[in-house]
Design a protein around this nucleic acid. Structure first.
Lengths: 186, 186
DNA sequence: ACCTGAACACCGTTCAAGT
DNA sequence: ACCTGAACACCGTTCAAGT
């Protein structure tokens, strides 16, 4: 039994796509933030052109790698926005975001980029910022956050804390987050 | 009148060195953080080998580019450590550091690096951290800074604020610094 | 449709040959 | 001593040729 041509091609394409993402993930988690596309192609056992067909730019590959993390973050923000104690929920969300950033190098690059290359990333980003805005409004109303902080600030500041922890070495994320949380109070 | 051979060579070498630094500065200030050494050589009108002779690694070129900024920072920290109001001096120093970081891309790369390649950078770094430790001690004694913050933390956090401002776009440095300063209070 | 891989331009880095 | 630039390996990116 063979699949109809269209389906078979799509299935094959999806398989190849997964191979490339797997190879890319292995590389970037191994600390190679450059992520040379030629090397990804070789690791995945496909031609370079195939990488470029699936991911026209390096940024699109990074966004594909970070997609799960970004979706999880957006979900966490939405749950946080409904929590009873908005101030505490904000702290928990930021801790979760930093923990993800520590484990997923691609997420740091995507969250730090000024704008998204893929529609999917754009959507998730908007979801995230929207939920965060709601969360901030409630936290502000509860007196937990100063007046002038926006969701975009929060995104930037989380990237900043992550970067600071990277500069310092390892294991400082928690302390730096506490400093940020204190600084966010009115 | 010709100079003795040794002096003439040294003078020529110094001239060539300045040409390379000038070319590199132009590139990096033009936004090319990659700073390709082949391109620097071409811009400076020297052979690639000459660049490598003067700056064996990219890191050493970056440190040469950031040397003035780093020296100025170390000086500012030493002056701050002697100021009457240690808390205020700390805030002023951090503002000055961030202003330098905004203007000198090489400084951000050097300050963010885990360790220095050149002895000179190492010395200046130690000077900076030493002065900062003194400043912190006095600010802490005056009740302006929480107990667990070290000079190394401060260095990392400044890099973090700078990074956050870069992620956010432009002009947020001041607001983010205020958040950091509030967060540093005990 | 999708994939391959040769091809070209460019950069990192070294080193033999020049002055 | 110091400088030059050819040389080699590698990566980004495109595109004609294959299936």
């Amino acid at each position: 039994m063979s699949y109809p041509l269209g389906v078979s091609l799509r299935a094959d394409s999806a398989r190849v796509r997964e191979q490339m993402l797997l190879a890319a993930r292995r590389r970037i988690e191994g600390g190679d933030l450059d992520l040379p596309l030629n090397a990804v192609a070789k690791d995945a056992g496909v031609g370079v052109g195939t990488v470029y067909r699936h991911f026209p730019t390096r940024q699109e590959l990074l966004e594909a790698l970070a997609a799960d993390s970004l979706a999880e973050l957006a979900g966490a923000a939405e749950r946080a926005a409904e929590a009873a104690d908005a101030g505490a929920a904000l702290g928990d969300f930021l801790a979760a975001a930093l923990s993800r950033l520590d484990r997923d190098p691609a997420l740091a690059l995507v969250l730090g980029a000024s704008d998204a290359a893929c529609d999917d990333t754009m959507r998730r980003s908007r979801e995230l910022l929207g939920a965060l805005t709601g969360l901030l409004d409630r936290a502000r109303a509860g007196g937990a956050v100063r007046a002038d902080v926006t969701a975009a600030d929060l995104r930037a500041l989380v990237c900043g804390v992550h970067h600071a922890a990277e500069v310092a070495g390892t294991g400082e994320t928690g302390r730096y987050l506490r400093i940020l949380l204190d600084g966010l109070k009115p």
